[in-house]
Structures are given as structure tokens and as C-alpha cells.
Design a protein around this nucleic acid. Structure first.
Length: 188
DNA sequence: AGGAAGATCTACT
DNA sequence: GTAGATCTTCCTA
């Protein structure tokens, strides 16, 4: 820890998360996801995200008929984690949306900077690497200490690209996936 | 008990 | 690059 950790700036607060979901998704790129496990601290730079909206978004966990706990979380306070299982993989999201809206940002890939040994170039892989499970569902990234996101003193600037979301059966006609151009940890 | 899921791996054209 | 099988735990009934 050491050098990288000293570059952490402050934790992202409610004002950061309480904006349009796509804007938050885009601005989460280059931020640092921190996971505390007792004495250990795992950290990685977020390099790929996707925005998911409300019941009108067919790919969203808040879409009609989806599990109630997901809908409630995505409607509720921003800055909370939303964790759910898909095809045997835990996926990690952060609730983020403008006031009185619904939405969450899926963290799809990170670039390891501290304590991570396994590959993190996919949403299921990064949760495995960071030991993220259902236990973290619903906790706050603003107040809690087990997991949170910080801004980071990035030396190198980067270029943001967007595309349609991956693996989604029915997508919206707007590009809601954001990633850092050329980063090798971005999923394919 | 059954169905569904925003994934991953492997094996090809 | 795309295609298919397998996937593992959840929610809802």
C-alpha cells in the first residue's frame, strides 16, 4: 500500500451519486474501488461501467417483474451497493440517479492496483477477486467501511469511449456502457 | 420446484 | 468474432 494508497483523495459522497445515472457511470471511470477485508485492502481503478435505469429499461434490474429488493434499492438512497447473482456470478452495482429517479451503475471491470491477484476484466471476475457477495448488498458506500469508492489522483489522463451494453437481450437505443479507451482490463 | 439472469469458457466457422 | 453449453444462486410460487 503504500504509494498507490497515498494518492487516494476523498471518498465519493452523496452529491456525486445523486445525478443522472449515465453521468455517474461515466465519471466513475478512473475512480478507485476499495474493499477492506480485515487487515487487507484491495483496490482497483474502475475502467468499465454500464448505466441501468428504471422500469422502462428492459435490461434493468428495476424492469417490470424483477426482484423486489432490486427495484427498491435502485429507487432508494444513492450510494448504496446492489449485488445480485447472474449465471453464477455476483455483479456489483452502485445505486445512482437524479432525485426521485431510479437507476444504478454496474461496475464491469477494474484495473488492480493493490492486493488483487486474479483477473478482473469482467463483472463476475472482479467480484470474485474482491470477495464481493450478497453480504454486501444494500450497504452504503458513503458511510460504510467494507467497500467504497474514492477519487484518485490520476497521473495519466484517459479517453472515455461509449458503446451499447454488453450481453443485454433488449437494450435501449442509447449508449450506456462507458470504458477507458485502450485499457487492457476492459472486457470484450 | 421451477425459471431466470446484465456471465464465462470453450470451440469452432 | 460468434455460438453454444453450462452456469449457481436467487426469487416467486
Amino acid at each position: 500500500m503504500q504509494k498507490a494508497v497515498k494518492n487516494f483523495l476523498k471518498r465519493l459522497n452523496k452529491d456525486f451519486y445523486e445525478r443522472d445515472t449515465a453521468i455517474v457511470a461515466k465519471e466513475l471511470l478512473g475512480k478507485v474501488l476499495v474493499r477492506r477485508l480485515g487487515e487487507k485492502t484491495l483496490a482497483g481503478i474502475i475502467v468499465e461501467t454500464e448505466a441501468y435505469y428504471d422500469e422502462n429499461d428492459p435490461a434493468s434490474r428495476a424492469y417490470l417483474g424483477r426482484p423486489k429488493y432490486c427495484v427498491e434499492l435502485m429507487k432508494g438512497d444513492v450510494g448504496k451497493s446492489l449485488v445480485y447473482m447472474v449465471h453464477g456470478n455476483w455483479l456489483f452495482n452502485v445505486v445512482a440517479h437524479a432525485k426521485n429517479k431510479t437507476g444504478a451503475v454496474l461496475i464491469r471491470a477494474i484495473e488492480p492496483i493493490n492486493g488483487i491477484k486474479t483477473k478482473t476484466n469482467g463483472p463476475g471476475k472482479l467480484t470474485k477477486a474482491m470477495k464481493i457477495t450478497k453480504e454486501l448488498n444494500g450497504i452504503s458506500l458513503i458511510d460504510g467501511n467494507d467497500i467504497f469508492i474514492c477519487s484518485f489522483n490520476n497521473k495519466n489522463s484517459f479517453e472515455i469511449c461509449s458503446s451499447y451494453r454488453i450481453g443485454v437481450k433488449r437494450d435501449l437505443p442509447i449508449k450506456l456502457r462507458f470504458f477507458i479507451k485502450g485499457n487492457k482490463f476492459v472486457s470484450k
